[in-house]
Amino acid sequence: MTESTSQHTPFEPRLVAFLCHYCAFAAADMAGSMRLQYPPNVRNIRLPCTGKLDAGHILRAFEEGADGVMIAGCEEGSCHFLKGNLVAKSRVNWVKTLLAKVGLEPERLHMYNLSSAMGPRWAAIVQEHVERVRALGPSPARAPRPAKSEATK
């Protein structure tokens, strides 16, 4: 997509999702097996647990051009590592304050909890966050993308 055409096409948010190996990643897998349709705007990154998530990972995603970031961990009380998802919840809330400090809408970051059996819910939450970020518009901190070379066009 070139810059000139992008001005005339509707805004498609770019999302990065950090998924727990034990629940959300399996749920996303199930959504695929069930042939569920959900927006292709999201890029999934698997974590051993959302407790592994670092504030730097989230900020780096925004730095690299993400319009929104979603974190998906186990349901509260069901963490494979007992409290990783609760640590992630606290960390996500803190990173939201950091986003506000740099002038980004904290809503661009959202944490969800789901089990590995919730394929349809995965499709639904991706849809929900895509819509949320679409309403906010492109990230004001989106770095200008380098022009694509002929080979990758």
Binding site: D54, A55, G56, L59, R60, F62, E63, L98, K101, V102, G103, L104, P140, A141, R142, A143
Partner: peptide
């Protein structure tokens, strides 16, 4: 190291935004 990374990211984001 972690705080340096976070602060550097925040400064870059703030500058990019403005």
């Amino acid at each position: 190291e972690k705080e340096a990374g976070i602060l550097a990211s925040m400064l870059r984001l703030e500058a990019q935004k403005n």
